[in-house]
Amino acid sequence: MALTHAQASGMGGMRGAGDLVARMMMSKKMRINEAKAYVAEKLKIGVQDLTDSVIMTEVRQELGLGQISPLPNNAKGMESKFKIADLLDIDINCVSRFKGMVNM
């Protein structure tokens, strides 16, 4: 059922920019269109491209935002979230916590 929803109407998560749009909803209470426009502008792509897995694979690899299939020497996990926080200009709780733990 979750997969059915994801295929019928979901943004695709890391296959696209669904996680990034979700972060703007969660951190700034942005509605869907505002959040999509904000993320698209930050990524320098069109709103339609946010759910295009081919375009977003290139964008995510280039910007180090994490990918479904990670490559060696590419940012992943917490490393990616550092970059996402910078790119979207938001505070990500676990990134701030990580910085505190390592005295950054």
């Binding site: 994801a6 295929q7 019928a8 979901g10 669904g18 709103v47 759910t51």
Partner: peptide, 15 residues
Amino acid sequence: RFVSVQQGNEVVMSY
């Protein structure tokens, strides 16, 4: 058997 939203109208999923 399966239908979907138009491209560009996708929304965020929480689980």
